[in-house]
């Protein structure tokens, strides 16, 4: 199942590829896009990629969600810990987005632009 071929990699580890793809797109967007809001979206995507990575790592073959009955029967279960972690991380991410958006509003109110390059120019002139 886990042979070394590229095809094997794609078919068995595709989740990781998606993770890398999402994170990279997010990072690229954050760096290359001049729009502040889109930069923030990029940042969110980058983080989402990392969250997905955690979720992926919790996967257990044929595992069900970790709702364990009182007698402890059932299973195998997917690991609950990364999911808890990601829940927390999402909360952190949301707060972060809120702070970021608040700053964007502040910058827009001050300079009347949402473009990073324009902003840099205005600030350099100040």
């Amino acid at each position: 199942m886990t042979d070394g071929s590229v095809l094997g990699l794609i078919t068995t580890r595709y989740a990781y590829l998606v993770v890398v793809f999402v994170a990279t797109v997010g990072l690229y967007m954050m760096i290359a896009n001049q729009n502040l809001v889109k930069k923030l979206i990029g940042l969110n995507m980058f983080q989402t990629g990392i969250f997905l990575f955690f979720i992926t790592s919790a996967y257990v073959v044929d595992g069900s969600s970790a709702i364990v009955p009182a007698d402890g029967a059932g299973g195998p279960f997917a690991s609950p810990l990364p999911q808890v972690i990601v829940l927390t991380a999402i909360v952190v991410g949301v707060s972060l987005t809120a702070v970021g958006l608040a700053l964007i509003i502040r910058l827009y109110a001050e300079y009347g632009t949402l473009r990073a390059d324009a902003l840099r120019e205005v600030i350099a002139d100040e």
Partner: peptide, 11 residues
């Protein structure tokens, strides 16, 4: 606004 921009970079 410089402070806000600095904070934004920091974010």
């Amino acid at each position: 606004g410089k402070a806000a921009y600095a904070a934004f970079k920091y974010v």
